[in-house]
Amino acid sequence: MDTYKLILNGKTLKGETTTEAVDAATAEKVFKHAANEHGVHGHWTYDPETKTFTVTE
């Protein structure tokens, strides 16, 4: 398992979190669910070198 990071750049919610996942696709599902639960919808990017997802509203 690897550690993946999410950076939230929402209009009303900003922050960072991490998750352990077997691959980037699994981490993305976890992060998108969490972002949706917090009402953050926007443009997603992924940097494979740093294993970091970013969502920007």
Rank of each mutant, 00 (worst) to 15 (best):
T52P: 00
T18V: 09
T19N: 03
H38D: 05
F31T: 00
E57V: 07
G15A: 14
E37Q: 13
T12W: 14
V40G: 02
A21E: 04
T56R: 05
A24N: 04
H41T: 12
T26C: 07
E37C: 13
E37H: 11
K11F: 14
T56C: 06
T17C: 15
E37S: 11
Y46Q: 00
Y4C: 03
M1A: 07
E28F: 15
A35I: 09
K11G: 08
D2L: 11
F53G: 00
H38I: 15
T18P: 01
A25D: 09
A35G: 03
L8P: 01
K5D: 02
T50W: 05
H33T: 12
T12S: 11
I7K: 05
T12C: 15
T12G: 09
K5W: 09
M1T: 11
T56N: 08
K32M: 10
K32H: 09
A35W: 06
K29F: 09
T45Q: 09
T18H: 09
L6M: 07
E37D: 09
E28C: 15
H33A: 15
F31N: 00
T52H: 02
N9F: 10
Y46P: 00
N9E: 08
H41E: 10
L8V: 11
T19I: 15
K32R: 15
G15D: 07
K29G: 08
T19H: 07
G10E: 03
E16F: 14
V55T: 02
H41Y: 14
T52F: 03
A35N: 03
A21S: 06
L8H: 03
W44V: 02
E49K: 11
V40L: 10
G15F: 15
G10H: 05
H38T: 08
F53Q: 00
L6W: 04
T12F: 14
D2C: 14
T52Q: 04
K51M: 07
T26Y: 08
T52E: 04
T54Q: 05
D23A: 03
K51H: 07
T54I: 07
T3C: 12
E28N: 04
A35Y: 05
A34E: 09
A21P: 00
A21R: 02
H33I: 14
G42C: 02
Y4K: 02
G10C: 12
T26D: 09
Y46G: 00
W44K: 00
V40Q: 03
T50I: 06
H33N: 13
E20N: 10
V55E: 00
T3F: 07
M1G: 08
D47F: 05
K51L: 10
W44R: 00
E57A: 06
T56I: 08
M1P: 08
L6V: 04
E28H: 11
T26K: 05
K14N: 09
V55Q: 01
K29T: 09
F53I: 01
G15I: 15
T19R: 04
H33W: 11
E16I: 12
V22F: 11
D23Y: 03
E16V: 12
E37N: 10
G39N: 09
I7T: 04
T54N: 04
V55D: 00
G39T: 04
H41V: 14
G39R: 06
Y46E: 00
V22Q: 11
A27D: 00
T18C: 11
E20I: 14
K14F: 11
T17N: 06
A24E: 07
F31H: 00
G10P: 03
H43L: 14
E57S: 06
L6A: 03
D23S: 07
M1S: 09
I7C: 06
V30T: 10
L13R: 07
V40M: 08
N36P: 03
K14C: 15
H33G: 09
D23F: 03
L8I: 15
K5N: 05
G39V: 04
F53K: 00
G42F: 04
Y4W: 04
I7H: 04
A34Q: 13
M1F: 12
D47C: 09
E57N: 04
V22C: 11
T54H: 05
D2K: 13
D47L: 04
D47R: 04
K14Y: 14
L8E: 03
W44P: 00
A21K: 02
A34I: 15
M1Q: 08
E16S: 10
T45P: 00
E20W: 13
E37A: 13
L13T: 11
V30W: 12
T18Q: 09
H38K: 14
E49V: 11
A35C: 08
L6T: 01
G15N: 09
H43E: 14
T18I: 09
A24D: 04
H41D: 11
T56S: 08
A21V: 04
T56W: 09
Y46W: 04
G42S: 02
H43D: 14
G15S: 13
H38N: 10
K11I: 15
T54V: 07
K11S: 11
N9V: 13
H38W: 15
V40N: 03
G42T: 02
H33V: 14
W44Q: 00
T56H: 08
H38G: 07
T26Q: 11
A21N: 02
G42Y: 04
K14D: 05
H33E: 13
T50A: 07
E49P: 08
H41S: 12
K5G: 03
L6G: 01
L6H: 01
I7G: 01
L13W: 15
A27Y: 00
H38Q: 14
T17I: 15
T12K: 10
K29Y: 08
D47I: 05
T50S: 10
K11E: 10
I7N: 04
K32S: 05
N36M: 14
F31Y: 02
A34K: 13
K14V: 10
H43W: 13
N36Y: 14
L6P: 02
V22Y: 12
N36A: 14
H43K: 12
H41A: 10
K14M: 10
H41C: 11
K11T: 13
F53P: 00
Y4R: 02
P48F: 07
T45A: 10
L6E: 02
V22A: 13
I7Y: 05
I7Q: 04
E49G: 11
V55L: 09
P48R: 07
V22P: 15
